[in-house]
Amino acid sequence: MTSAAIADGFNLLPHRSRKRRALRRQRLAILAVASLAGCAAVGSVAGWDAFERMRLDDRRIALDATLRASNAALDEHARLLRVEAERRRAREAAQPLAVPRNRFLALLEALADAPPRTDVVLQRVTQRADEVELAALAPDSQTAARWLKRLENLRGVQSVEVVEMKRRAETRPSVKRDAVAPAIDRYEFTALVRYEAAGQKTVAAPAKASAKGEAPMNFRTSNKRNPQ
């Protein structure tokens, strides 16, 4: 009877086809929802990965900038250390050369500041490594000693010693013609101003003052007269 009804164009059980269509639509909906959920999950993961990559790139760029700044600071520090080391080496190399020059200039200033009426005539100044040789004329040994005594107080001077002194007669020009002027005895002396060696500490010098307030000088004299 059922087959007869279908053959005549009538479906006597329509609920079965409706169930099949509903089940098909439900499965399609579930599949679509699952697809959408999967796409959303994949998109969220891809978005998070892109965000993390951007954040890491920003941190890497910041770290690179910090490292570059640190390297520049280290390079500048190393350069300043090299410059300071070169300056220190230059000062150490120039100090031994500057000490004799400064001592010699101080000696010349002391000689220039001598009282005008000392009657001592400086003839020659010779500089050596740790000493200066002076050649001068004086009317007597006491005047020469007083003239040299001032040099003992200069900074760095270790001793002042007269190594040679000889008397010679000088004739002054006479005002009158055919008149013989009397000869004047003058003392020609050579003294050594010895300085302390580099790095040597100053040692307390012996008492320089005698009963008369004058320090004895070490003289080695020669009383030979120069031939006229």
Rank of each mutant, 00 (worst) to 15 (best):
A41E: 02
A34S: 14
G43P: 03
L74A: 15
L63P: 00
A72D: 15
A94I: 00
P96S: 07
I61E: 13
G43I: 01
R117F: 06
R59K: 12
A37F: 06
V42N: 02
E109F: 01
R79K: 10
P116Y: 06
A72H: 11
H77P: 00
L36W: 04
F104H: 04
A34P: 00
V83Y: 01
R88M: 02
E84K: 04
A50I: 02
E84G: 02
L122W: 11
P115Y: 05
P115I: 02
G47Y: 15
A90R: 08
V33K: 06
Q123F: 04
I61S: 14
A93I: 01
A94R: 02
C39L: 14
L81Y: 02
A114W: 05
R87H: 10
A46R: 11
R60W: 11
A65W: 07
R55V: 05
A41S: 09
F104L: 06
N71A: 15
R89A: 15
R89T: 05
A98E: 12
A72S: 15
D64Y: 09
H77L: 13
M54Y: 05
A73C: 06
I61F: 08
R117A: 11
S35E: 06
V33F: 04
R101Q: 07
T118P: 01
A65H: 12
E109M: 03
L105W: 01
A73F: 09
A32L: 12
A46H: 11
N71K: 11
N102I: 04
L108K: 08
A98V: 09
F104P: 00
V121Y: 13
E86A: 12
G38W: 11
W48M: 05
A114T: 14
I61A: 15
A50D: 10
V83S: 01
F51T: 03
A62N: 11
L108R: 11
Q95C: 03
E86D: 13
L67E: 13
A85L: 07
